[in-house]
Simulated assay, not measured.
Amino acid sequence: MSTTTLTRTVHRSAGTVEHSAWMGWMETIPSPDLVAVSHGTDDPAGRTAVRALVDVVDLALAETAVHGAFVDVQDPRVDPYLHSGALAPGQKAALVPLLLSAGTHASGDLAAAAGGRPGTKVAAPLGPDASLAAVLHRRLVEAGWIPGEAVVLACAGSTDPRGIADCQTMAQLLAGRLQVPVTPAFISAAEPRLPDVLDAARTLNPGRRTVVSSYLLAPGYFADLVARCRPDVLGAPLLDPSQTPPRELVDTVIERYRRCVDR
Score class of each variant (00 low, 15 high):
L61N: 09
D199G: 06
F186K: 01
A124D: 14
S213A: 15
P195M: 05
Q179I: 09
P219C: 06
R162I: 06
V66F: 02
R177D: 13
R247M: 03
A201Y: 07
A218P: 03
R230T: 10
G15K: 03
G108F: 08
T183E: 14
G235L: 00
I254N: 05
R259N: 13
T159C: 04
S158E: 00
D199N: 09
V35R: 04
L234F: 04
Q74N: 14
P195K: 09
A21T: 05
S131I: 01
G108V: 12
C167P: 01
V253Q: 11
P206D: 02
Q91Y: 06
P206W: 09
T169H: 10
R258K: 10
V96A: 11
I164G: 05
L110C: 09
H137I: 03
W145T: 02
P32K: 02
A94T: 14
L173D: 07
A123C: 05
R138I: 00
G176F: 00
A102N: 11
P44V: 15
E142N: 13
Y81T: 02
P237K: 12
A94H: 12
T104D: 08
S188C: 09
P97M: 10
A14Y: 04
R193L: 14
A227W: 07
V54M: 06
Y221G: 04
M26A: 12
G157V: 04
A113V: 04
Q91K: 08
P245T: 09
E255D: 10
T28S: 14
V182L: 07
A200L: 10
R202A: 06
V122A: 09
L217G: 05
S107W: 01
S13W: 11
T159F: 06
H83T: 12
T64E: 08
S84R: 08
A49V: 08
A49P: 05
A114M: 02
V50D: 04
P245D: 03
S2H: 14
H137E: 11
F186M: 10
D109C: 07
R228K: 14
Y257S: 02
S38D: 15
S13G: 03
P118F: 07
Q168Y: 14
A60H: 13
L225E: 02
G85C: 11
D251N: 07
P128A: 05
S84A: 06
D79N: 06
D33I: 00
A130Q: 12
V141N: 02
V253C: 14
E63F: 03
T28P: 04
R8A: 13
P181V: 07
A69E: 05
D75F: 05
R208E: 15
A21P: 01
Q243S: 05
R247K: 09
Q172Y: 02
I254L: 07
T210R: 11
L249Q: 01
T159M: 02
A49E: 07
R47T: 03
D232K: 06
P231A: 09
A165G: 13
P246M: 05
E149D: 08
M1T: 07
A111H: 11
P241A: 12
R256K: 10
F222V: 04
D129K: 08
H67W: 10
P237S: 04
G40K: 08
A114D: 01
A201H: 07
Y221C: 00
